[in-house]
Protein backbone atom coordinates (compact mmCIF):
# COMPACT_ATOMS: atom_id res chain seq x y z
CA UNK A 1 0.00 0.00 0.00
CA UNK A 2 1.34 3.40 -0.99
CA UNK A 3 1.92 6.20 1.46
CA UNK A 4 -1.10 8.47 1.84
CA UNK A 5 0.55 11.53 0.28
CA UNK A 6 1.45 9.62 -2.87
CA UNK A 7 -2.11 8.30 -3.19
CA UNK A 8 -3.51 11.77 -3.76
CA UNK A 9 -1.97 12.40 -7.16
CA UNK A 10 -3.00 8.94 -8.36
CA UNK A 11 -5.63 8.40 -11.02
CA UNK A 12 -8.97 7.62 -9.37
CA UNK A 13 -9.77 5.42 -12.35
CA UNK A 14 -6.60 3.31 -12.02
CA UNK A 15 -6.72 3.00 -8.23
CA UNK A 16 -8.36 0.19 -6.36
CA UNK A 17 -11.26 0.51 -3.95
CA UNK A 18 -9.13 0.59 -0.79
CA UNK A 19 -6.73 3.20 -2.18
CA UNK A 20 -9.69 5.40 -3.08
CA UNK A 21 -11.20 4.99 0.39
CA UNK A 22 -7.92 5.80 2.14
CA UNK A 23 -7.14 8.78 -0.06
CA UNK A 24 -10.56 10.37 0.21
CA UNK A 25 -10.21 10.98 3.95
CA UNK A 26 -7.42 12.57 6.03
CA UNK A 27 -4.16 10.71 6.53
CA UNK A 28 -4.36 8.07 9.23
CA UNK A 29 -8.06 8.60 9.99
CA UNK A 30 -9.56 5.66 8.11
CA UNK A 31 -10.82 2.70 10.10
CA UNK A 32 -12.05 -0.12 7.94
CA UNK A 33 -15.19 -1.82 9.24
CA UNK A 34 -15.75 -5.49 8.41
CA UNK A 35 -12.41 -5.44 6.63
CA UNK A 36 -10.51 -8.31 5.05
CA UNK A 37 -9.16 -9.55 8.41
CA UNK A 38 -12.71 -10.36 9.42
CA UNK A 39 -12.88 -12.69 6.41
CA UNK A 40 -16.59 -12.22 5.85
CA UNK A 41 -16.61 -13.92 2.50
CA UNK A 42 -19.64 -14.83 0.42
CA UNK A 43 -21.00 -18.25 1.42
CA UNK A 44 -22.88 -18.37 -1.90
CA UNK A 45 -19.78 -18.05 -4.08
CA UNK A 46 -18.29 -20.83 -2.00
CA UNK A 47 -21.35 -23.01 -2.63
CA UNK A 48 -20.81 -22.51 -6.34
CA UNK A 49 -17.12 -23.30 -6.01
CA UNK A 50 -16.12 -19.77 -7.05
CA UNK A 51 -13.23 -17.72 -5.74
CA UNK A 52 -14.04 -15.43 -2.82
CA UNK A 53 -12.50 -12.20 -1.51
CA UNK A 54 -12.00 -11.47 2.18
CA UNK A 55 -13.75 -8.11 1.79
CA UNK A 56 -16.36 -9.42 -0.69
CA UNK A 57 -15.33 -6.73 -3.15
CA UNK A 58 -16.31 -3.69 -1.11
CA UNK A 59 -14.42 -1.50 1.34
CA UNK A 60 -16.48 0.07 4.13
CA UNK A 61 -15.29 2.24 6.98
CA UNK A 62 -15.10 5.61 8.67
CA UNK A 63 -12.57 8.42 8.36
CA UNK A 64 -12.43 12.13 8.78
CA UNK A 65 -12.03 15.14 6.57
CA UNK A 66 -11.17 18.02 8.88
CA UNK A 67 -13.82 17.85 11.57
CA UNK A 68 -16.29 15.83 9.52
CA UNK A 69 -16.78 12.10 10.12
CA UNK A 70 -16.98 10.48 6.69
CA UNK A 71 -18.54 7.04 6.28
CA UNK A 72 -16.94 5.57 3.17
CA UNK A 73 -18.27 2.83 0.89
CA UNK A 74 -15.94 1.91 -1.96
CA UNK A 75 -16.79 -0.80 -4.48
CA UNK A 76 -14.06 -2.89 -6.10
CA UNK A 77 -14.59 -3.51 -9.79
CA UNK A 78 -11.73 -6.00 -9.98
CA UNK A 79 -13.78 -8.54 -8.05
CA UNK A 80 -16.70 -9.81 -10.17
CA UNK A 81 -17.18 -6.33 -11.63
CA UNK A 82 -18.07 -4.81 -8.27
CA UNK A 83 -21.39 -6.65 -8.27
CA UNK A 84 -23.43 -6.63 -5.07
CA UNK A 85 -24.18 -9.83 -3.14
CA UNK A 86 -25.47 -10.58 0.34
CA UNK A 87 -22.30 -9.74 2.31
CA UNK A 88 -21.26 -6.69 0.28
CA UNK A 89 -24.86 -5.47 0.25
CA UNK A 90 -25.08 -5.83 4.02
CA UNK A 91 -21.83 -3.87 4.42
CA UNK A 92 -23.26 -1.09 2.28
CA UNK A 93 -26.65 -1.02 4.04
CA UNK A 94 -25.00 -1.33 7.46
CA UNK A 95 -22.64 1.58 6.77
CA UNK A 96 -25.40 4.01 5.73
CA UNK A 97 -27.51 2.93 8.69
CA UNK A 98 -24.51 3.38 11.00
CA UNK A 99 -24.06 6.91 9.65
CA UNK A 100 -27.71 7.72 10.38
CA UNK A 101 -27.43 6.26 13.91
CA UNK A 102 -24.20 8.23 14.41
CA UNK A 103 -25.96 11.45 13.36
CA UNK A 104 -28.80 10.68 15.79
CA UNK A 105 -26.28 10.14 18.58
CA UNK A 106 -24.54 13.43 17.87
CA UNK A 107 -27.88 15.26 17.73
CA UNK A 108 -28.76 13.84 21.14
CA UNK A 109 -25.41 14.04 22.96
CA UNK A 110 -23.87 17.10 21.27
CA UNK A 111 -26.68 19.60 20.77
CA UNK A 112 -24.13 22.33 19.98
CA UNK A 113 -22.33 20.35 17.27
CA UNK A 114 -21.75 22.31 14.08
CA UNK A 115 -22.83 20.93 10.71
CA UNK A 116 -19.17 20.30 9.93
CA UNK A 117 -18.98 17.88 12.86
CA UNK A 118 -21.94 15.83 11.63
CA UNK A 119 -21.40 12.75 9.46
CA UNK A 120 -21.60 12.42 5.71
CA UNK A 121 -21.59 9.28 3.56
CA UNK A 122 -19.37 8.98 0.46
CA UNK A 123 -19.99 6.09 -1.93
CA UNK A 124 -17.50 5.32 -4.68
CA UNK A 125 -19.52 3.29 -7.15
CA UNK A 126 -17.90 0.65 -9.31
CA UNK A 127 -20.55 -1.88 -10.21
CA UNK A 128 -23.04 -3.23 -12.68
CA UNK A 129 -25.54 -3.89 -9.89
CA UNK A 130 -26.65 -7.33 -8.76
CA UNK A 131 -24.14 -10.21 -8.46
CA UNK A 132 -25.77 -12.98 -10.46
CA UNK A 133 -24.22 -15.77 -8.38
CA UNK A 134 -26.42 -14.63 -5.52
CA UNK A 135 -28.88 -12.57 -7.50
CA UNK A 136 -31.88 -12.64 -5.17
CA UNK A 137 -29.92 -11.54 -2.11
CA UNK A 138 -28.21 -8.84 -4.18
CA UNK A 139 -31.54 -7.54 -5.44
CA UNK A 140 -33.00 -7.38 -1.93
CA UNK A 141 -29.88 -5.52 -0.73
CA UNK A 142 -30.45 -2.87 -3.42
CA UNK A 143 -33.95 -2.21 -2.04
CA UNK A 144 -32.48 -1.86 1.44
CA UNK A 145 -29.92 0.68 0.24
CA UNK A 146 -32.70 2.76 -1.37
CA UNK A 147 -34.66 2.63 1.88
CA UNK A 148 -31.60 3.84 3.83
CA UNK A 149 -31.04 6.69 1.35
CA UNK A 150 -34.55 7.99 2.02
CA UNK A 151 -34.03 7.57 5.78
CA UNK A 152 -30.76 9.54 5.54
CA UNK A 153 -32.42 12.53 3.91
CA UNK A 154 -32.39 15.82 5.84
CA UNK A 155 -30.01 14.14 8.26
CA UNK A 156 -26.93 12.64 6.62
CA UNK A 157 -25.84 13.82 3.17
CA UNK A 158 -24.99 10.95 0.84
CA UNK A 159 -22.49 11.76 -1.90
CA UNK A 160 -21.90 9.57 -4.95
CA UNK A 161 -18.40 9.48 -6.46
CA UNK A 162 -18.23 7.95 -9.93
CA UNK A 163 -14.88 7.70 -11.63
CA UNK A 164 -14.09 4.01 -11.72
CA UNK A 165 -13.49 1.62 -14.61
CA UNK A 166 -16.74 -0.29 -14.41
CA UNK A 167 -18.93 2.79 -13.93
CA UNK A 168 -22.26 2.58 -12.16
CA UNK A 169 -25.05 0.61 -13.82
CA UNK A 170 -27.98 -1.67 -13.16
CA UNK A 171 -29.78 -1.27 -9.89
CA UNK A 172 -26.88 0.73 -8.52
CA UNK A 173 -27.53 3.24 -11.34
CA UNK A 174 -30.72 4.29 -9.63
CA UNK A 175 -29.19 4.06 -6.17
CA UNK A 176 -26.63 6.65 -7.35
CA UNK A 177 -29.39 8.78 -8.89
CA UNK A 178 -31.13 8.80 -5.51
CA UNK A 179 -28.14 10.22 -3.57
CA UNK A 180 -27.97 13.91 -2.63
CA UNK A 181 -24.95 14.83 -4.74
CA UNK A 182 -23.11 13.18 -7.62
CA UNK A 183 -19.45 13.88 -8.35
CA UNK A 184 -17.98 12.36 -11.52
CA UNK A 185 -14.79 12.40 -13.50
CA UNK A 186 -14.94 12.33 -17.27
CA UNK A 187 -14.12 8.61 -17.11
CA UNK A 188 -17.01 7.83 -14.81
CA UNK A 189 -20.12 6.38 -16.41
CA UNK A 190 -23.62 6.39 -14.98
CA UNK A 191 -26.74 4.74 -16.32
CA UNK A 192 -29.23 1.95 -15.92
CA UNK A 193 -28.81 -0.32 -18.90
CA UNK A 194 -25.23 -1.20 -19.82
CA UNK A 195 -24.11 -0.78 -23.46
CA UNK A 196 -24.18 -4.49 -24.29
CA UNK A 197 -27.80 -4.83 -23.20
CA UNK A 198 -28.89 -1.79 -25.23
CA UNK A 199 -27.18 -3.28 -28.28
CA UNK A 200 -28.98 -6.55 -27.66
CA UNK A 201 -32.34 -4.75 -27.40
CA UNK A 202 -31.96 -2.22 -30.20
CA UNK A 203 -29.54 -3.77 -32.63
CA UNK A 204 -25.95 -2.92 -33.47
CA UNK A 205 -26.94 -0.23 -36.00
CA UNK A 206 -28.71 1.69 -33.29
CA UNK A 207 -26.17 1.17 -30.54
CA UNK A 208 -22.74 -0.40 -31.05
CA UNK A 209 -21.47 -1.32 -27.60
CA UNK A 210 -17.91 -1.70 -28.92
CA UNK A 211 -17.87 1.98 -29.90
CA UNK A 212 -16.16 3.39 -26.81
CA UNK A 213 -16.68 7.00 -27.85
CA UNK A 214 -20.42 6.40 -28.25
CA UNK A 215 -20.58 4.69 -24.87
CA UNK A 216 -18.87 7.65 -23.15
CA UNK A 217 -20.98 10.15 -25.07
CA UNK A 218 -24.12 8.46 -23.75
CA UNK A 219 -23.29 7.80 -20.11
CA UNK A 220 -19.92 9.47 -19.41
CA UNK A 221 -19.20 12.22 -16.90
CA UNK A 222 -19.13 15.10 -19.38
CA UNK A 223 -22.54 14.21 -20.75
CA UNK A 224 -24.01 13.69 -17.32
CA UNK A 225 -22.62 17.13 -16.35
CA UNK A 226 -24.35 18.81 -19.31
CA UNK A 227 -27.60 17.01 -18.41
CA UNK A 228 -27.36 18.11 -14.77
CA UNK A 229 -27.33 14.44 -13.74
CA UNK A 230 -24.00 14.90 -12.02
CA UNK A 231 -23.53 18.01 -9.92
CA UNK A 232 -19.76 18.30 -10.19
CA UNK A 233 -17.20 17.17 -12.75
CA UNK A 234 -13.66 16.79 -11.39
CA UNK A 235 -10.23 15.73 -12.66
CA UNK A 236 -9.33 12.05 -12.55
CA UNK A 237 -7.26 12.12 -9.37
CA UNK A 238 -8.04 10.95 -5.86
CA UNK A 239 -7.08 14.48 -4.73
CA UNK A 240 -9.72 16.06 -6.96
CA UNK A 241 -12.51 13.82 -5.67
CA UNK A 242 -11.27 14.41 -2.13
CA UNK A 243 -11.22 18.20 -2.59
CA UNK A 244 -14.82 18.18 -3.83
CA UNK A 245 -15.84 15.99 -0.91
CA UNK A 246 -14.07 18.33 1.55
CA UNK A 247 -15.90 21.31 0.11
CA UNK A 248 -19.24 19.51 0.42
CA UNK A 249 -18.48 18.48 4.01
CA UNK A 250 -18.49 22.17 4.99
CA UNK A 251 -21.86 22.86 3.39
CA UNK A 252 -24.81 23.61 5.70
CA UNK A 253 -26.82 20.40 5.83
CA UNK A 254 -30.07 21.96 4.57
CA UNK A 255 -28.29 22.92 1.33
CA UNK A 256 -28.04 19.30 0.21
CA UNK A 257 -31.71 19.09 -0.75
CA UNK A 258 -31.02 21.83 -3.30
CA UNK A 259 -28.43 19.62 -4.99
CA UNK A 260 -30.85 16.75 -5.60
CA UNK A 261 -32.07 15.82 -9.09
CA UNK A 262 -34.95 13.66 -7.84
CA UNK A 263 -36.74 13.10 -4.55
CA UNK A 264 -39.73 15.46 -4.54
CA UNK A 265 -42.83 16.29 -6.53
CA UNK A 266 -41.22 19.53 -7.72
CA UNK A 267 -38.13 17.69 -8.96
CA UNK A 268 -40.26 15.07 -10.73
CA UNK A 269 -42.08 17.89 -12.55
CA UNK A 270 -38.71 19.32 -13.56
CA UNK A 271 -37.40 15.96 -14.81
CA UNK A 272 -40.60 15.49 -16.81
CA UNK A 273 -39.68 18.60 -18.81
CA UNK A 274 -36.55 16.71 -19.81
CA UNK A 275 -38.62 13.66 -20.77
CA UNK A 276 -40.90 15.86 -22.90
CA UNK A 277 -37.81 17.26 -24.58
CA UNK A 278 -36.56 13.70 -25.22
CA UNK A 279 -39.90 12.81 -26.83
CA UNK A 280 -39.84 15.94 -28.97
CA UNK A 281 -36.18 15.73 -30.04
CA UNK A 282 -35.82 11.94 -30.34
CA UNK A 283 -32.05 12.50 -30.21
CA UNK A 284 -29.92 10.09 -32.21
CA UNK A 285 -26.89 11.08 -30.17
CA UNK A 286 -26.23 12.86 -26.89
CA UNK A 287 -24.49 15.63 -28.84
CA UNK A 288 -27.89 16.70 -30.23
CA UNK A 289 -28.88 17.50 -26.66
CA UNK A 290 -25.60 19.36 -26.03
CA UNK A 291 -26.39 21.60 -29.00
CA UNK A 292 -29.93 22.14 -27.72
CA UNK A 293 -28.47 23.09 -24.32
CA UNK A 294 -26.50 25.89 -26.01
CA UNK A 295 -23.22 24.24 -26.98
CA UNK A 296 -22.90 24.86 -30.74
CA UNK A 297 -19.63 22.95 -31.11
CA UNK A 298 -19.98 19.82 -28.99
CA UNK A 299 -17.08 18.01 -30.65
CA UNK A 300 -14.49 20.59 -29.58
CA UNK A 301 -16.13 20.98 -26.21
CA UNK A 302 -15.89 17.25 -25.57
CA UNK A 303 -12.13 17.37 -26.26
CA UNK A 304 -11.37 20.44 -24.12
CA UNK A 305 -9.44 19.95 -20.89
CA UNK A 306 -11.80 19.37 -17.95
CA UNK A 307 -11.27 22.83 -16.43
CA UNK A 308 -12.02 24.54 -19.77
CA UNK A 309 -14.98 22.25 -20.32
CA UNK A 310 -16.42 23.24 -16.94
CA UNK A 311 -15.93 26.91 -17.72
CA UNK A 312 -17.48 26.70 -21.19
CA UNK A 313 -20.16 24.01 -21.07
CA UNK A 314 -23.77 25.18 -21.00
CA UNK A 315 -25.90 22.84 -18.96
CA UNK A 316 -29.39 21.81 -19.99
CA UNK A 317 -31.91 24.21 -18.46
CA UNK A 318 -35.19 22.55 -17.50
Amino acid sequence: MSKWSTLLSRSFLESNARERALGLVDDGTFTELVGPFDRRTSPHLETLGEAVEFDDGIVTGIGKIGKTPVFVISQEGRFIGGAVGEVGGAKMVGTIKAAIDFADRIAKDYPNATDEEKPIVAISFETGGVRLHEANAGLLAHAEVMDQLQKARHKVPVIALIGSKVGCFGGMGFVAAATDVIVMSEFGRLGLTGPEVIEQEMGKDEFDSADRALVYRTTGGRHKYVMGDCNFLVEDTIAAFRAQLAELAKLPREKFEELRRIGSEVLVAKQLKGVALAAEMQPKDSRDVWVHAGNPDPVSLALAPVADFRAQAKRLAL
Binding site: M146, D147, L149, Q150, K151, G173, F174, V175, A176, A177, A178, L190, G191, L192, T193, V197, I198, E201, M202, E206, F207, T218, T219, H223, K224, M227, D229, R261, I262, G263, L267, V268, Q271, G274, V275, L277, A278, Q282, P283, D285, S286, V289
Partner: peptide
Protein backbone atom coordinates in the same frame (compact mmCIF):
# COMPACT_ATOMS: atom_id res chain seq x y z
CA UNK B 1 -38.16 -4.44 -16.99
CA UNK B 2 -37.15 -0.81 -17.23
CA UNK B 3 -36.84 1.02 -20.54
CA UNK B 4 -33.58 -0.19 -22.10
CA UNK B 5 -32.96 2.40 -24.86
CA UNK B 6 -30.38 4.90 -26.02
CA UNK B 7 -32.67 7.91 -25.53
CA UNK B 8 -33.43 6.52 -22.08
CA UNK B 9 -29.73 6.47 -21.22
CA UNK B 10 -29.08 9.92 -22.72
CA UNK B 11 -31.83 11.43 -20.55
CA UNK B 12 -31.34 9.19 -17.50
CA UNK B 13 -33.77 6.29 -17.13
CA UNK B 14 -32.11 5.64 -13.75
CA UNK B 15 -33.58 8.90 -12.41
CA UNK B 16 -37.17 7.90 -13.27
CA UNK B 17 -36.99 4.56 -11.49
CA UNK B 18 -35.05 6.14 -8.64
CA UNK B 19 -37.66 8.89 -8.30
CA UNK B 20 -40.48 6.36 -7.95
CA UNK B 21 -38.58 4.36 -5.33
CA UNK B 22 -37.78 7.44 -3.26
CA UNK B 23 -41.44 8.50 -3.42
CA UNK B 24 -42.58 5.06 -2.23
CA UNK B 25 -40.03 5.05 0.59
CA UNK B 26 -41.17 8.54 1.62
Amino acid sequence: GNGPGKVEEIFGMNKATGAYQLALAE
